[in-house]
Simulated assay, not measured.
Amino acid sequence: MADGVDADEADAEQVAAELRLSIGLLVRRLRQVRIEGDLTLPENSALARLDRDGPTTSSALAKIEQISPQSMGATVAALLSRGLLEQREDPADGRRRLLWVTEAGRQALGSRRNARTQQLAQVLTSGFTQDELRRLAAAAPLIERLAQEL
C-alpha cells in the first residue's frame, strides 16, 4: 500500500480509494498519448462495443453507452465516414439499419490496443523489477474481477 500499511491490515475502503486513484491515473496517462489516426473516446467505446457485442442500431447503442441519440449519431457518422463502420439492413426487420464493424474498424481497434500495450510494456521493461512484474501480473486478474463485479 502507498502509505506502508501491511496488506493484512488493509481495509476495503482504503484499498478502494487507492485503487480508484491509481487506476484513474493510469487510464488518464494512457489516454494522454495520442496515436496517429487515434479514435476519440466515444468512437473507441462505440466501436469496441459493436465489435464485442455484435451489430445493433444507433439508438440501441446510444442507450447501452448511456449517451443521447444525437451524440451517438455524430459518433456513428464519424465512424461511417472513416470506413470503420457500415450500415446494413436488419435481416429480421428490413426497416431497421444495423451498424457493423468493418475490417478497417477491427484493425483500428487492434492498432489502438497494440499501441497502448506497447506503451505499457516499454515502461514495465525499463522501470520495474522482475518481482514487481510478477506482483503486477498477479494483481491483473483481481483488478479485472473487480471491474466485472462493479
Rank of each mutant, 00 (worst) to 15 (best):
Q118L: 13
T57Q: 00
R95F: 00
N114K: 14
L41W: 10
A137E: 11
D93C: 03
R96Y: 00
Q66P: 06
P91A: 02
R113Q: 14
A147G: 11
A10P: 11
S111C: 12
A92F: 05
P69S: 07
S45M: 11
Q119V: 05
Q87A: 07
Q107S: 13
E132C: 10
A12P: 05
L120E: 02
A121Q: 14
G94D: 07
I23L: 15
G110P: 04
E13D: 15
G83H: 08
G105Q: 02
A78E: 07
P69E: 04
R134K: 15
R52W: 05
Q118V: 09
G54E: 03
A77H: 08
L19F: 10
E89W: 05
A46K: 00
A7M: 14
S71P: 09
Q32M: 12
D8M: 15
A17K: 15
R34W: 07
D8N: 15
S58V: 03
Q66N: 13
Q130W: 12
A147D: 07
L133R: 15
L61V: 00
S81W: 05
R20S: 15
G83Q: 07
G73H: 03
T102Q: 08
Q32E: 14
T40S: 12
G105P: 05
Q122Y: 09
D53F: 04
L124I: 10
I67E: 01
N114W: 08
Q87I: 02
T75E: 01
L142P: 08
V101P: 02
A138T: 10
R96I: 00
A46F: 00
S126Y: 09
L61N: 00
D38T: 05
L30Q: 10
I35M: 11
Q118F: 08
S71G: 11
P141R: 03
S22A: 14
Q87Y: 03
D53W: 02
A147Q: 10
T56K: 04
L26R: 09
P55L: 01
G110K: 05
A17S: 15
L21R: 13
T125S: 12
A140W: 13
P91W: 02
A74I: 10
A137W: 11
R82D: 03
R113Y: 13
I23G: 08
E65W: 06
A140M: 14
A60K: 04
N114D: 13
G24R: 06
P55S: 07
L146H: 04
I23H: 10
V27Q: 11
L39I: 05
E9Q: 15
G54A: 05
R97Q: 08
L124A: 12
D93K: 05
E65T: 06
D51T: 08
R29Y: 13
V76D: 00
W100D: 07
Q87K: 12
D90E: 04
R95G: 03
Q66S: 13
G73Y: 01
E43L: 05
L39M: 08
A92M: 09
L19R: 07
T102G: 06
G37F: 04
Q107F: 08
T102S: 09
E103H: 11
